[in-house]
Structure formats: structure tokens, C-alpha cells
Simulated scan of single mutants.
Amino acid sequence: MRPSGRTADQLREVSLTTGFARHAEGSCLIRMGGTEVLCAASVEARVPPFLRNTGLGWVTAEYGMLPRATHTRGDREAARGKQSGRTQEIQRLIGRSLRAVVDRAAMGEMSITLDCDVLNADGGTRCAAITGAWVALALAFRHLVKMNVLKTVPLTGQVAAVSCGIAGGDAVLDLDYAEDSSADADSNFVLTDGGGIVEIQATAEKTAFNEAQFQELLNLARKGTAALFALQRQALGD
């Protein structure tokens, strides 16, 4: 039995609340069990220097955790004067994941930054950030269309992410902290609604896993992201 009482292929309770950050061009508060991440999209009429005069837009992300998002207080990275390697790795992952489903040529030379701030952490924060950030990005694009800045929404599809792992010898979907901290193996799958794979992060924490077990994890991830894609569309009113 999983600590949460869920079945092996069951997501935690998920909710997507749009418009939470009232000043952002698009925003979404995603809740996955005890994990809560606020994702806010900000639009700027400029691009990084390496993209000037290319006609391409840019989508990037920043990620952070509130000091008491976890069981014990963590220092603010701004107070330390630098970001941790983990923070940098996660925000690059979020940016890569979103750019995988954006037609940057159709954006024109503008930038959209997704700020993903973890309010409460109970496992799977990077996955929740990716799933919620896509909704915030879609809302920002819709706002730009409404304001006649863009003719169409330059999204080529949906992207969502979910964690899977091997706990107690079984493949399970959407690990919370209790499972993640003791799992034999854990992984993060970033997938598109068209069946594409954007990124897979998989690690044996205790013992190596085999190809059959990896396929089980992928099958669970596809089932989990299918549910997340439906919730994303529902949050947008589609």
C-alpha cells in the first residue's frame, strides 16, 4: 500500500487555478496533492542579444522555493547571492519543455518569462511547474491575440510532466515526498499531447532497474500526462 493510499497508477488530486497573479499576462496556481506552485507569465517586447534580428521569440523560466515551502526553512537564494545548481537545472528544464511546443517564428521578437514559485513542496515540484507554466503561457498568448499583438496563438501542442518511480518493488505514478525520499528509483517524464518525449530524467537511487521496469514507468507517465492534458484544457475552457 502506498503511504497516500493511492493505487499505483493514480495521480494525487490536481487543480489548476487561472488568473491567480492578477497583474501577469497569464498565471496559474497548480496544486498536486501537497505541492503548490504559482506560475506567472510576463511578456517583454525584446529578446536576448543572441536572438536580435532573427525574427524568433524566446520563452524562458525562473524557478524558486519560498523559505518555508519545505519541512525546515531554506535560505533565500537572493540572500546567499547565487542560485543553487538545482535551481538552475530546474529552470532550464522548464524553459526547454515549454519551447518544445512553441512556434518561436510566429511569436516574433518578444520574450515570455515564466516565474515558477513553489509555495508548498511535497514532491514533484518541477513537474508541477512545467504543467502549470504551460497553462500560464497559453493564457499569455491568448492575451496577446486579444490585444492584437499576435494574430494566432503560437503553440504547437501541450506539454506536461509527471514523476514516476519504483517504490517497494512496484512502479508507481506521481510520487509524493514520502515515496520520493525512499524510492528505489525515481524519474521525471516531460511529454507532449502528441505523444512526443521532451525529456526523461531517471535515476536508480538504491538498485538498478531494467528495461521492463522503465517501460512500466513510461506507461504510467503517459497515463498521468493524459489526465494532466485534459485538466489543462479544462482550465483554459477548451
Score class of each variant (00 low, 15 high):
56 L>C: 03
61 A>W: 02
77 E>Y: 04
57 G>E: 07
72 T>I: 02
72 T>K: 07
60 T>V: 08
48 P>Y: 06
56 L>Y: 13
79 A>G: 05
54 T>I: 05
68 R>A: 13
62 E>I: 04
54 T>F: 04
46 R>G: 08
44 E>D: 11
65 M>E: 11
49 P>T: 08
44 E>K: 07
49 P>S: 10
48 P>N: 08
60 T>I: 02
47 V>R: 14
59 V>A: 04
49 P>Q: 10
72 T>H: 07
73 R>Q: 14
71 H>Q: 13
77 E>R: 03
47 V>H: 10
55 G>L: 10
76 R>D: 14
73 R>G: 05
58 W>I: 04
47 V>G: 11
76 R>M: 14
75 D>N: 10
64 G>C: 05
46 R>L: 12
50 F>N: 09
61 A>Q: 02
68 R>I: 06
46 R>D: 12
55 G>E: 09
60 T>S: 15
53 N>E: 15
45 A>Y: 11
61 A>H: 06
73 R>S: 12
58 W>M: 07
71 H>R: 10
72 T>G: 01
76 R>F: 14
50 F>C: 11
76 R>P: 03
75 D>F: 04
64 G>H: 02
65 M>A: 12
78 A>P: 00
65 M>R: 03
72 T>F: 00
58 W>S: 04
64 G>Q: 01
60 T>F: 03
56 L>E: 14
70 T>M: 01
45 A>W: 10
49 P>G: 06
75 D>R: 14
48 P>T: 08
44 E>H: 07
69 A>G: 14
66 L>S: 10
73 R>Y: 07
49 P>W: 12
53 N>Q: 15
63 Y>F: 15
59 V>S: 04
70 T>R: 00
78 A>H: 05
48 P>S: 07
77 E>V: 08
61 A>L: 07
76 R>T: 05
56 L>N: 11
44 E>M: 13
59 V>D: 03
50 F>K: 04
63 Y>N: 02
79 A>K: 08
57 G>Y: 05
67 P>E: 00
79 A>Q: 13
50 F>V: 10
63 Y>S: 02
45 A>I: 01
69 A>P: 00
68 R>S: 12
46 R>C: 09
59 V>N: 02
50 F>G: 03
47 V>Q: 11
55 G>H: 10
72 T>Y: 01
44 E>A: 12
49 P>C: 04
67 P>V: 00
52 R>Q: 15
71 H>Y: 03
79 A>R: 09
79 A>H: 12
70 T>H: 00
59 V>R: 03
46 R>Y: 09
64 G>K: 02
78 A>S: 15
66 L>P: 06
54 T>H: 06
44 E>W: 00
56 L>F: 10
56 L>Q: 14
75 D>V: 12
53 N>W: 05
54 T>L: 06
